[in-house]
């Protein structure tokens, strides 16, 4: 195999690995927003809890922060989900009554407080220097196999989460969630405990986000407060879900991979144009901002033209008799 082809293949592996990790985050958001209509704008917070708990538990012991406890990686992943779930339960208990914009503000506020804690409590997290030497699964293997093996781990986890959510979405549980999303008053009128079910969805989604955060920490072998900036986590994941098609799990995965490919290939493209001398070297740092602008623009275009995303949610066909019995669908209200 020629060197350039090999390089291209390794790039594809890296791309798919990151895309897969984002797919996990995106599936988590799909549970909350896609199925239940909960506007969680604090993805970065649950991402951070997952990343830091797994990192602290699996890293080798060091005087720089609490632990590490040198535990096996699966324990770290399980703990990441557990802790994210606990925090989500506490947050959800008090915040889920809020209307969507207010919920967005509250979740951002909590995520930002969390980021302040991670940055300032150096005894716990090593502050802004972050946690290093986090183990990555199969990193002992020789060079190309190690990347393939880690990719396989990520893909297996994506598949597992996908199947789990897909089963849930097509079970009565998923139908109740969609009923709450579309009309919570009607759902409670037929006797569904809306508050309890919203909380379930919020906790489940946040646990998946925590898992995604843990995978990211293991992938980079490092986690610092910079990684929990709202841009790279919260915002990208939102764009991915909306572009892919919220309410559709396949759409969530596809959106994650497509948007991540656009995001990372624009970096390659900008670096290439610089190395070819098409644009001045001074633009190298500036180019990064052009990418953010581009992703923002992609979101605007998707929202205006393709509001349902690449793979729109598939609504269940109602049988002829049920349709005749049901009242005519009302046009969507302005709120």
């Amino acid at each position: 195999m020629s060197d350039s082809l090999f390089g291209l293949m390794m790039y594809a592996v890296a791309l798919l690995t990151m895309g897969g990790i984002y797919a996990v985050l995106c599936l988590g958001l799909n549970i909350q927003w896609g199925f239940t209509g909960l506007f969680n704008a604090g993805i970065a917070g649950f991402f951070a809890i997952g990343a830091y708990s797994s990192a602290l538990l699996t890293a080798p012991p060091t005087p720089n922060h609490v632990g590490g406890f040198d535990l096996p990686i699966p324990v770290g992943l399980a703990a990441a989900m557990l802790f994210s779930g606990i925090v989500a339960y506490a947050v959800g208990r008090i915040c889920l009554r809020l209307r969507s914009d207010y919920l967005a503000m509250a979740t951002i506020g909590i995520a930002e407080i969390l980021r302040l804690i991670l940055k300032n409590e150096a005894w716990l997290t090593n502050g802004s220097r972050g946690i290093s030497n986090i183990p990555r699964p199969f990193e002992g293997l020789p060079a190309p196999q190690a990347q393939f093996a880690f990719l396989a781990v990520v893909l297996v986890i994506v598949l597992f989460v996908y199947v789990l959510i897909q089963r849930g979405a097509h079970a009565p549980w998923g139908r109740v969630m969609r009923a709450i999303r579309d009309d919570d008053i009607a759902a409670s009128a037929v006797g569904k405990d809306v508050e309890q079910l919203r909380l379930q969805s919020f906790v489940f989604g946040s646990m998946v986000m925590g898992l995604g955060g843990a995978l990211m920490a293991h992938s980079f072998k490092f986690i610092g407060p910079e990684a929990t900036e709202p841009l790279l986590t919260t915002f990208l994941v939102w764009v991915m879900l909306i572009a892919g098609g919220s309410g559709n799990n396949r759409g969530a995965v596809l959106g994650a991979i497509v948007i991540w490919t656009i995001w990372s290939s624009t970096e390659v493209f900008i670096n290439a144009t610089i190395s070819w001398g098409w644009v001045p070297q001074a633009w190298a740092t500036q180019g990064a901002f052009l990418r953010v602008f581009l992703i923002g623009l992609v979101l605007q275009i998707v929202l205006q033209r393709y509001a349902k995303g690449l793979l729109p949610e598939r609504t269940v066909e109602i049988s002829g008799r049920a349709r005749a019995a049901a009242p005519r669908a009302q046009p969507e209200s302005a709120d």
Partner: peptide, 17 residues
């Protein structure tokens, strides 16, 4: 309206970048 809220997130990042 929630769609406009999402759009305003994007605008925030577009302005900043």
């Amino acid at each position: 309206t929630i769609v406009i809220v999402i759009a305003s997130f994007g605008i925030a990042l577009m302005i900043r970048s």
